[in-house]
Design a binder for these strands. Sequence first.
DNA 1: GTCTATATTGCGATAGAC
DNA 2: GTCTATCGCAATATAGAC
Lengths: 215, 215
Amino acid sequence: MKQDSRDRILQTATALFAEKGYDSVSLRDITAAAGVNISMISYYFGSKKGLYDAALAAQLSELSSLLSMDADAMDPRTLVREYAERAIRAHEKNPHLLKYIFRALLSPSAAQTGLFEAAVSRIYDLLDHALTRGVQEGLFRPDLDVPSAVLLLAGTVNFHYISTPVRDRIAAEKRVLPDERTYVSHAVEVFLRGIEKPNPRDAETPSPASADADF
Amino acid sequence: MKQDSRDRILQTATALFAEKGYDSVSLRDITAAAGVNISMISYYFGSKKGLYDAALAAQLSELSSLLSMDADAMDPRTLVREYAERAIRAHEKNPHLLKYIFRALLSPSAAQTGLFEAAVSRIYDLLDHALTRGVQEGLFRPDLDVPSAVLLLAGTVNFHYISTPVRDRIAAEKRVLPDERTYVSHAVEVFLRGIEKPNPRDAETPSPASADADF
DNA sequence: GTCTATATTGCGATAGAC
DNA sequence: GTCTATCGCAATATAGAC
């Protein structure tokens, strides 16, 4: 088996930390599930914290794929759709990623937030820049509040994934729930339609929705 | 001080559990911060789990105010705005509520999810019913996917709060961020505008956003 | 590389004095 | 109601045999 123990530990630990959180997982839990001896963690990763850092770093590297877009070369609406598509793929490729993100959001004092914040900050800049340019180009409402809209878009795309465990449990009594791609494509189009510049011909008959909008 | 110790314990524990999670808080942490003796937890709450259950139950009771709406008596758009307004008030009144909700979402195996799921389920029904009726009454797009839209609305309203800790930390380098009410009112109007029935006069000039929408 | 055995610490819980 | 003292246990970590 050579050093395939290291991979078994890292893979098992990544799943368990995502599922239960750092303090709710013991080294005995991990090594029992991975089928290796507990002293192998010290041997390969130094400590529990060292193991967690290795798992987190691997997760954060998955975020990079979201960032490698040339924002200035694309139509802002295309960039929004592309961001959503890449978020879907990132979550599909690694189902644990979002749990690490939300655990970092919930307990900001926890380990290794520096790397995490840098990645989040870059995504924020990317979307902020795209929406600002969309307003300047007359694609989006001139009174759009860009920081609010960036936040709305990020929440829109990611909330679905975080809510799946509970939704799956209450789904039995409800009608059938949408799958990931149905939801995200739907959500992005609602978002784009909601922020687009109103048709001039509608000027004399304002829509009910904008009656008390103040932005 | 009589039994004011009980209140001090409960209040301190509620904040610490929200901030760090159940397993990351020790009874010694709580009693040290509350300034009471550790044996008082056993005396008043029986066990750590008993203390957590007491804190969680108090949080969940805050959710009830979200539910006491007569959905059938209101315009669906009004209900959506009212839901958002009540969510804001619930979060303002108790800044720990959403952390308990998201911790339950992240670790569904954790304690006391039955009560939690019942509350979530009722909110889902409320919104699902309102949006369905809005479609039937011709207010919203006839091809609206209601389950997706319910999820989108819930994510829209709540994501803002969960992201505040990280946003506050990276806000220094960015432009100023929107406050709660600015964001939520903005987000709800984008949502309503995004799902409303298109003006018939736009039929021959479809909006760019709906070009590849398939719902 | 892997395992056993053990050192050390901090945990939840409670008996019993006051 | 409150405190001291302590029990039993599970946690992380590692020394050392193989």
